[in-house]
Design a protein around this nucleic acid. Structure first.
Length: 198
DNA sequence: ACGATGATGAAC
DNA sequence: TTCATCATCGTA
């Protein structure tokens, strides 16, 4: 991208393509830590939010996964190709943002639970204005919401793994460590858009 | 600790 | 058509 101004394309910051998501959900969830969730702001300029909390939903065998009870109208996007957004309403008032992972036909996805200053999946979508209209869209610039790689991989020692939140009904699957968290203070700041650290 | 709030899916 | 459930959040 030789003609793109540096301010529009910070160092180490390239869009994550479908092949990144065409892997098992737990690996994608791990690797999304430190990446940026990007959405055009009111002025059309991309706004970047560092991803610091994710959860993996592995497929039909995962009893916490929506796809474990077969395909329905709500979860159909999960069964599609990797790299699309899966958005649904939770508890009647919160939109949940997921990115579909893995092979077509396998209902797997990663829930985006925390980005930037926004803690909690419902707060993420509220802050970014994400709703049902994003469901099924590709995670590309054209889709209006995408990921870009962080400058460097978050070191393993900074990644905490815990059971997923709110899935106590899922039997043994409720306890599996499929939630990935990194302390946002340990993450790089976004170039040219202010600093989180002193 | 609990109520809000409404889509979803399964049962009837 | 009804009903229990739900990948949450704000207030108390």
């Amino acid at each position: 991208m030789p003609n793109m101004p540096a301010s529009a394309h910070p160092r180490g910051c390239h869009p994550l393509a479908a092949d990144f998501f065409d892997r098992p959900a737990d690996r994608v969830a791990r690797d999304l830590l430190g990446a940026w969730l990007v959405i055009p702001g009111p002025n059309g300029r991309p706004t970047r939010h560092v991803v610091f909390e994710t959860e993996a939903y592995l497929g039909a065998h995962d009893l916490a996964c929506h796809g474990s009870k077969g395909m329905t109208r709500r979860n159909a996007t999960m069964f599609g190709p990797a790299g699309r957004w899966y958005v649904y309403l939770c508890y009647g008032m919160h939109w949940m943002l997921n990115i579909v992972t893995g092979d077509r036909g396998v209902p797997a996805a990663v829930l985006i639970r925390g980005v930037g200053a926004h803690v909690g999946p419902g707060r993420v979508t509220k802050a970014l204005g994400i709703d049902r209209s994003f469901d099924g869209r590709p995670a590309t610039r054209r889709g209006g919401l995408w990921f870009e790689a962080g400058g460097s991989r978050v070191p393993q020692r900074l990644v905490e793994r815990t059971p997923r939140i709110g899935v106590g009904y899922a039997g043994a699957w409720a306890q599996k460590p499929l939630r990935f968290v990194v302390d946002p203070d340990e993450l790089p700041t976004i170039p040219l858009s202010g600093s989180r650290k002193p």
